[in-house]
């Protein structure tokens, strides 16, 4: 399992975990107690699509794209969060799983702007998803992007409500608790208290929500503006990983550079210190070098 946090230096050695024998797509395999079906699939090279799953956070279990069939279960099972059990018989590719994945993609594609979601186009093709089947006059979450600060943009027309930004802002990483899911049902949305603007909230602009956002709903202003201008071009970007100079913690920074200008800063998810997280200085404090 690629849980990077368990490999951090200084982490106590975990007690040994029992072996669990299970069958995935007809192949008998041995996993460890506590492993998820998804981690077993990935170790076997089986490509189960995920949207709301982030490898640095607890599974949110919300998008239901990673559903698999488990023999004996009445309904499909989320592979991202379900732990393996002895003698489990898992099928990752069946008519039922393909139907569920196709529909999740169609439901999301018909209500949310997925234009900056990686891999989604390929999945749409793979599962035969056609979001236009519902027609053009259906409910969507379309809305203007919220541009209320200089550092990052919240474009909730692209939000699939994966809960990852809330988890990263809250108890799983940042402990700032600036945002939450508000409302219910299709009206559910990511918001600060009383749907106020970000500068009136507890946000500290660490940008760790951007790091975990799977759809580009949260984006540094640099990237948002360049995309709006049509100048954002990943093929012309280089990535250089270095160490943040601001303090002594030693966070790794990956500088995304286009045309000799830093356009975005991230940190590797598998870096033992950051797990992909930074503070406002590391993530946004780069204008002085250019």
């Amino acid at each position: 399992m690629s849980d990077v946090r368990t490999s951090a230096p200084g982490t106590p050695v975990a007690p040994p975990r029992r072996k669990v024998t299970l069958t995935v797509d007809g192949t008998e395999t041995v996993a460890r107690e506590g492993d998820t079906i998804l981690s077993v699939c990935r170790s076997l090279g089986i490509d189960v699509p995920t949207l709301c799953y982030g490898d640095t956070l607890e599974p949110a279990n919300a998008c239901r794209l990673c559903m698999v069939e488990v023999e004996g279960a009445r309904v499909l099972v989320p592979s991202c969060s379900r732990e393996v059990e002895p003698d489990m018989n898992v099928t990752t590719d069946s008519a039922r799983t393909r139907h569920a994945r196709r529909m999740v993609l169609e439901l999301l594609g018909s209500s949310v702007d997925l234009s900056t979601t990686p891999r989604v186009e390929a999945w749409m093709a793979e599962f035969g998803a056609d979001p236009t089947r519902f027609g053009a006059d259906v409910a969507t979450v379309a809305q203007p992007a919220k541009v209320d600060n200089n550092l990052y943009v919240r474009d909730y027309a692209k939000c699939i409500l994966c809960y990852q930004c809330v988890d990263a802002c809250g108890e799983q990483f940042q402990n700032t608790f600036a945002i939450s899911v508000a409302g219910r049902g299709f009206d559910a949305r990511i918001a600060v208290e009383f749907d106020a603007a970000l500068p009136d909230s507890a946000c500290v602009y660490c940008g760790n929500c951007i790091a975990v956002c799977p759809t580009g709903a949260l984006m540094p202003s640099t990237e948002f503006d360049m995309r709006a201008d049509g100048t954002w071009d990943v093929s012309r970007q280089s990535e250089t990983t270095t160490v943040c100079p601001y303090c002594g913690v030693g966070c790794n920074l990956t500088l995304h550079v286009q045309d000799n200008r830093i356009v975005k800063v991230t940190s590797p998810n598998d870096h033992s210190i950051t797990s992909g997280n930074l503070c406002v200085k590391g993530r946004f404090g780069f204008t002085h070098v250019q």
Partner: peptide
Amino acid sequence: HESCGQCVPCRVGTVRQDE
């Protein structure tokens, strides 16, 4: 009206079903 909104099949599915 009553879907909690947590998972996609229900959050969007109940809306599409209604439509």
